[in-house]
Design a protein around this nucleic acid. Structure first.
Lengths: 202, 202, 202, 202
DNA sequence: AATGAATGAGTGTTCATTCAT
DNA sequence: GATGAATGAACACTCATTCAT
């Protein structure tokens, strides 16, 4: 979120359009996925098509900016839990916030996007590091099972959102149900041996 | 699986082309997702583009046919477990087979497709009914927690596949790890109260 | 011109459209140069824009086809003079035909196009070889000065057309005047030493 | 060259920007041809895009200014030869300087540009008049054939540059070879009758 | 006077779909 | 029934030009 910008600040109207574009892109992406068209995003933002490209050289760059914002927000949310007194509650808090965010922004394309965008992959790695810290602390406190890694939790962040996606008009809090189930699966109580080792990062 | 078709049977070569197309579409969809092009599918099937539209009025219809086949196969797999002696093992067996299939065919578009295709929504409902039976029997046997419904399990079927999707070159069996975690979450041991009621069907 | 086509012949209507497109492209290129747009070419040919791409995968390919036709026609014209009894007259005949053709089709872009298109560069080399033969024979017969090569003549083919280009509405045969001047410069009579060696080919 | 401008003189910084722009445009045009973009020219000049349009209402006007400078420089070069003692050497001197300049600046667009720009067409006419004087004097001295006009020479000025253009990486002095050939064609020795009368001016 | 953000028509290209053969 | 040619509405992206700052 707090990305240091070496470039000089934008003019007021340009900054406003940039925000309008990011907001429009966010909504359009949420509704239509990555196939959302630049033209629709521009229309939604109330600017001309050319303006999009003044702010983002390519469509991919625009998507990366949107995803980057989400990653940064999640990273901030995670960082705020790093020194919480109860590691189990801290992880729970973060994971809930993350799953909530995933309702609105599918990270499926993160993998593809971050391949071409070092900034994005760095943000992703930073988030991963924070998740890992949260998980390590929770594991040490006995709040999660011992065979679970930060990478596991990172990957599972989207699961509640995807699960709910199959329902036509899902109740707005339905994802909490599936998050709870996954979290029950992550707890030490009643854990069974896992059939496959945790994946390496990345 | 064998849906009685009120239309007259296809000529032998037409029937063959239909199968070639379905097979080609399946592979192309697995490799490229729903953005796979009709031209590529036709080429892979070794037929002309026009032939695709003779068999399937729109691209959506072709996708629906492919998805329908998967649904039917899953339904069969589920039905075979209906009278297995151990209800817990039966559910486990089915869910594992389903999660494996999901590796290859993303059901994300099922919702959209079945909105426009009554045949597909009927197949989906049939699968849902079978999953519900399997879950009911497993619940009665104490193999899954009491607050879990067939709809829950139906929705969670894709979760392992989606979780793995964020990894660049996932080990081919990594999904089993996340299926195991979800299954641990579905077990009665260590279950915590769920924060949201199960969704209605559909 | 007589390009062996390994592919099966086009359907009659497709062949017709291909010719319409080549003709339209030719005219549009003559009027607007390589910046002629595909849309304009399609409109002039009376077909939809998509049809252009059915026949030529890229704009460059279309241009290459047009240029290739011209090169082939010139090559044929040159080949017909190879066994003419009077080598000087043969070269004159060919060069006149070529300069005439250049009125309509500027070879300036040939260099760029043939870089990416092996077929085109082969055609160009074939033409060059024929021009060289014609020049060699004419030189042996004393019809052109001794310090002139086939490459020189090849390069000078466009000169009359370009010279005329600066005139607003040039008389249709004005190029003959400048061709005559260049030809006078190529004759042994009154030749002065050339200040730079002939360029290598290519 | 120093055209009296009825408009009031530019502010010092504006005048400087104008020169920067002209220089940048010259380089960019030499490298990229007329498709050079205004944005690139502005960047090269170190000014904002808007500034370009403050100085030149359209891109065409900027091109006209650049071409005008070249015309004026050529006119100056020609004028300096008007009272040289040897008319033949004077014409040779001028034509060589002109052909050299054409290496860098293609006059192909001069016709189009001067149609819309009276200043440019006047400069062109002035150059034509000077070339005509040089040719007249050379003809009177027997240094060029009698059937050649100033317009002929004017038009042939670009020929060496265009001839060389078909070569990929032409040796920097190759144009001299083709200029020599054209000049041999303009000499009285071995001249044959020209098949077309000299064009009227313009 | 200079800036650079915004505009919108235009570009080459793709692709589901239609239709003459 | 099958073919593959034709269509035309998209798409991402470019660029000369205008205009608010």
């Amino acid at each position: 979120m707090i990305v240091p910008t070496p470039t000089r600040p934008l003019r007021a109207d340009a900054a406003r359009n940039r925000e309008l574009l990011l907001a429009a892109a966010e909504e359009e992406l949420a509704e239509r996925g990555v196939d959302a068209s630049i033209a629709d995003i521009a229309r939604r933002a109330g600017v001309a098509k050319g303006t999009v490209f003044r702010h983002f050289a390519t469509k991919e760059e625009l998507l990366a900016a949107v995803f980057g914002n989400h990653l940064a927000a999640l990273t901030d949310a995670g960082a705020r839990q790093l020194d919480a007194p109860d590691p189990g509650a801290a992880l729970l808090e973060f994971v809930t916030a993350a799953a909530d965010a995933m309702q609105r922004y599918d990270l499926t394309y993160l993998r593809v996007l971050s391949q071409n965008d070092p900034r994005l992959s760095e943000l992703r790695d930073r988030l991963h590091a924070i998740v890992s810290s949260l998980v390590d602390r929770a594991r040490a406190a006995g709040a999660v099972r011992g065979d679970i890694t930060g990478t596991d939790v990172f990957l599972l962040l989207c699961a509640p959102a995807h699960t709910v996606e199959l329902v036509a008009d899902p109740p707005p809090d339905l994802w909490r149900r599936y998050l709870a189930i996954v979290l029950d699966g992550l707890r030490p109580e009643g854990a069974t041996a896992l059939p496959h080792p945790a994946p390496a990062w990345p």
